[in-house]
Design a protein around this nucleic acid. Structure first.
Lengths: 277, 277
DNA sequence: CAATGTCTGTAACGAATTGTACATTGTGAT
DNA sequence: ATCACAATGTACAATTCGTTACAGACATTG
């Protein structure tokens, strides 16, 4: 049983101060292994007794008992240095390595200037249309969610209603198309239709040979690793998030008011659970 | 420089008792990291001052100094790789580095055994319900998409129709809940409702303090980096994909037929663009 | 509005910590 | 034998530790 589990076990019964202590402990595990009551109290901005109460609430006799338990845990790991680097066995390590390099590659592909170029059409656009295939749905959703929070008029287009939704698109709008590997016919068609209407198109795909890369000049190519039987959505999601950051950066302080209003709305409608952090 | 090297450096100049202390320290490194002067003295069958003299002869101010140095050494190895990278840079907010370490941390959190534990309820379940908050929507979609391809009865629950959709859930089903940071009230409520119905719940969250961690025993905690104004969805998506891989692996060759059939269906309905790759 | 109970910080106390002054022992040289 | 000196243990002082008692603040309830 880890310290995380032990905290979670009583998580709901913790008072605000104890919750703060828990967070502090989770942020820096060394505090608990090496630190004293005073150290912890200072870091969590509370008093000594609250630390002790925290320890007892976790089911220990006192702080000494708690610290002893934690130390026993790290002492066990300390004894066998070989255990520390236990590599995941089997082919799994390939999947993990692939994911790492994929993220790495995506980050270097989407460097500052590329990102700027891709984000540019989205900043001044009246509306932003988002198109996506199946494996890239997560990326499209991320872009929708992120962009919606910092600007109006963002629409995710479902494959079932291309005609209805796209009919009002104009050259003052912009579109982002995600499409990977098995290019969705409907997605490609919709992208072509938008281009015909004069809408600037940003396409995020996985090959220069993609049907979407050839019909626009704002595009990027991401490397998509296979994870298990299917392709990973991570590069698409990462690209979407970086795009949001870029657009947010360009819009600057204008978005602060917007976010504040969103915050107030959430509070009023009690969207969130009470004990948030 | 390790403690062994430091002892060796002054090895020749050590007195008999100091030599005994050194041997004791080398036999059990735990004594130095956690023990007090009294503990060490007892173990080495000597007196308190000899311990202090031993510390000073090694070039430290006193025992406190020596122990602090040793603890710093193990603390460096103790923290996660992500924490280690972040240490020297201080509070620097580098989005790209944060993303890298976040992926890194997620991969190490979801090791083979943890993944197995989390995936287990999803394998035999009659139906799988997926709940999600806002920032984790992308992860929920990824799980829906991936799981749907390898098994039947996967449902993504929208916050607007919890009641209608969940009413038929039974103890033979399973549920996966994504919820991060600002815990969605509706998501927490739905999770509780499912638990009341006896449905096994797997929760993927960002803190042991999450309301979802405390009410189930299949859960994991992911580190979510801030990307721009909002939190990243990458850890959730990655977790979802790894879960799919795990479930797919457990189901084994059964899923091959299923995928083949899916393939044929796609071809017949011409879902994809002709020039694929 | 009073009563009650929970939460949390201040103050104090005994135990344990490290470091130091001093006494004792052991050893080798003269 | 005795002196010099290093090695080691004893005793004590100054902190610091963890813990407990107590009282004020705060919210909740009747």
């Amino acid at each position: 049983m880890s310290i995380q589990e032990r905290i979670a076990a009583v998580g709901i019964r913790l008072t605000p101060t104890e919750r703060r202590i828990a967070q502090t402990v989770l942020d820096d595990p060394t505090l608990l292994t090496f630190g004293t009551v005073a150290d912890l109290a200072k870091q969590a901005k509370t008093s000594h007794p609250s630390i002790v109460r925290f320890a007892t609430k976790l089911g220990f006799e006192g702080y000494t008992d708690l610290q002893g338990w934690v130390r026993q845990g790290v002492a066990d790991q300390l004894g066998t240095p070989g255990q520390r680097i236990r590599r995941p066995h089997g082919m799994e390590s390939n999947v993990r390595a692939d994911i790492q390099t994929s993220i790495d590659s995506t980050l270097s592909t989407l460097d500052s200037s590329t990102l700027q170029r891709l984000a540019k059409p989205l900043i001044g656009a009246e509306r932003v249309w988002i198109l996506s295939g199946e494996t890239s749905r997560a990326g499209a959703y991320t872009l929708l969610s992120g962009l919606s929070m910092i600007r109006d008029g963002v629409q995710l287009i479902d494959q079932h209603n291309f005609g209805r939704d796209l009919s009002g698109a104009t050259a003052r709008d912009a579109a982002v198309a995600f499409d990977f590997a098995r290019y969705r016919r409907s997605c490609v068609c919709a992208a072509r239709a938008l281009l015909d209407l004069g809408v600037p198109l940003v396409s995020i795909t996985d090959s220069p040979l993609s049907p979407l890369a050839s019909i626009t000049d704002s595009w990027c190519v991401l490397k998509v690793p296979g994870v298990g039987p299917f392709d990973s959505s991570l590069p698409a999601v990462l690209a979407a998030e970086l795009l949001v950051v870029e657009v947010a950066g360009e819009l600057g302080p204008k978005i602060h008011d917007r976010i504040d209003r969103l915050e107030q709305l959430w509070n009023k409608t009690e969207t969130f659970h009470r004990h948030s952090r």
